[in-house]
Design a protein around this nucleic acid. Structure first.
Length: 368
RNA sequence: GCUGGAAUCGUCUAGUGGCAAUGACAAGAGACUGUAAAUCUCUCGGCUUCGGCCUUCGUAGGUUCGAGUCCUACUUCCAGCA
């Protein structure tokens, strides 16, 4: 069983430590998205230096390249990419939702490789097998997100997710006996924007007794707090909860933590960094805008990242306008650091009982 | 000096009688939430009551209902010959 200690809690909100075979994760924690076993534009050393505790890779992408078996041969995900810390893998379920030409039936999902058009199939069993071969500490169950916002579609996707979860758990338990190192399974709660479906999904996921929970299919931040309240009131307190894909907006993490989520992942910080959209304590700015041409102040004077300590806005603006690779590197260091550190501060504020004040102060300034 | 060729929005470029005028880049702005994203979208002569109006393709004339496009002269540049 995955060990999770809660150090302090206040209502649904809590700060704790997840103990994985590759090290501890102090929660709440923002997990870096390393989809193809790489955090785009960053080295793993840079990730460590900016304070990241864990990374999340994607099973779908790693199956396409370099292949799950190759990563197994390399000694597992952490060894392969030289992260040497806690790792997660997403199941590939999200890709089934987002790729075109995906055919889904009871058995699993059929789709074409976006790289070479190969016809591929993924089932709960094959996703589990691939994730065990990849060897991350924490695996996500193979789930199904609704393609539309209609209740019947959400319900059907949830139903299928539940059926697949049972198969994931069975396969996971079988594989656990074949491997020496422990790996853990998170069930994924679906149900879309309907809280009664969310409650039903949470109950079902709980009944399967996984090691933790992912909360998936969250697209509208509005109403997320209520949804999390519903879900996390049902989920067992002693198991960790991961809010899948949320973290572009700082408010998402504040709300997520407030309502009992322990870990988060999101591609937005690095993607936006590559596109020149950078976080500051006073809100997000587009560094490519002409007004930063001769702004010799740090990107965020309150930030102590590699980028803010050594460079100014005018230089970053120049790097972006001339399309230098370092623009994306420095911007990614900063954005990732900003979200990681903000989440760390949320943890600290939970521990010392100042969460409400910190949330109010941070959000008032960021979204003013 | 002679003979060819060329001059179009910041740059390069399409255009051979119906054109405010093609494409790329540059420029200006916006988007991005379990990454088919170092990507995508919009604006890019001026004015506008959004129907249009005005001014534009080296300069000055001309032909034509109509000229970036044809003709003449000039200016500048390029190539070849002297």
């Amino acid at each position: 069983m995955l060990k999770f200690d809660i150090e302090k809690s206040d209502g649904l909100m809590r700060a704790g430590v997840i103990h994985t075979p590759h090290g501890d994760i102090k929660t709440p924690c923002f997990v870096g998205a390393a989809t193809r076993a790489s955090v785009k534009a960053l080295t793993m050393k840079e990730m460590r230096d900016l304070g990241s505790q864990a990374i999340l890779a994607n099973t779908y992408h790693l199956i396409l390249a370099p292949g799950a078996d190759l990563i197994k041969k390399a000694g597992g995900l952490a060894e392969f990419c030289s992260w040497h810390g806690p790792t997660f893998t997403d199941s590939g379920g999200f890709q089934i939702f987002s790729l075109p030409d995906v055919k889904i039936n009871q058995e699993g999902a059929k789709f074409k490789s976006h790289i070479n058009g190969d016809k591929l199939e993924m089932t709960p069993e094959s996703s589990m097998q691939a994730q065990w071969a990849i060897g991350a500490d924490i695996h996500m169950a193979f789930d199904h997100l609704a393609r539309s916002e209609k209740r019947e579609d959400m319900e059907e996707a949830m139903q299928r997710t539940h059926e697949w979860l049972v198969r994931c758990k069975k396969e996971h338990d079988k594989l656990a006996k074949e491997y020496d190192i422990e790996q853990y399974l998170y069930a994924v709660v679906q149900g879309g924007t309907f809280n009664d479906l969310r409650a039903k999904s949470a109950e079902f996921c709980k009944s399967v007794e996984p090691d933790g929970f992912g909360i998936g299919g969250v697209f509208v931040a509005d109403g997320m707090g209520e949804m999390l309240k519903t879900v996390n009131s049902i989920l067992p307190e002693n198991k960790p909860r991961h809010l899948l894909g949320m973290g572009q907006e700082p408010i998402d993490i504040f709300v997520g933590a407030e309502y009992g989520c322990d870990t988060f992942d999101c591609v937005a910080p690095t993607r936006m960094a590559r596109n020149g959209s950078l976080y500051t304590s006073d809100g997000r700015i587009n560094i490519k805008n002409a007004k930063y041409k001769d702004d010799f102040t740090p990107l965020d004077p309150e930030c102590d990242c590699e980028c803010c300590k050594n460079y100014n806005r005018a230089y970053l603006h120049h790097l972006f306008k001339t399309d230098e690779i370092t623009a994306k590197v420095l911007a990614s260091i900063h954005n990732e650091h900003f979200v990681v550190k903000t989440t760390d501060k949320i943890r600290e504020s939970i521990l010392d009982g100042t969460f409400k004040e910190y949330k109010q102060e941070f959000l008032a300034r960021y979204y003013k």
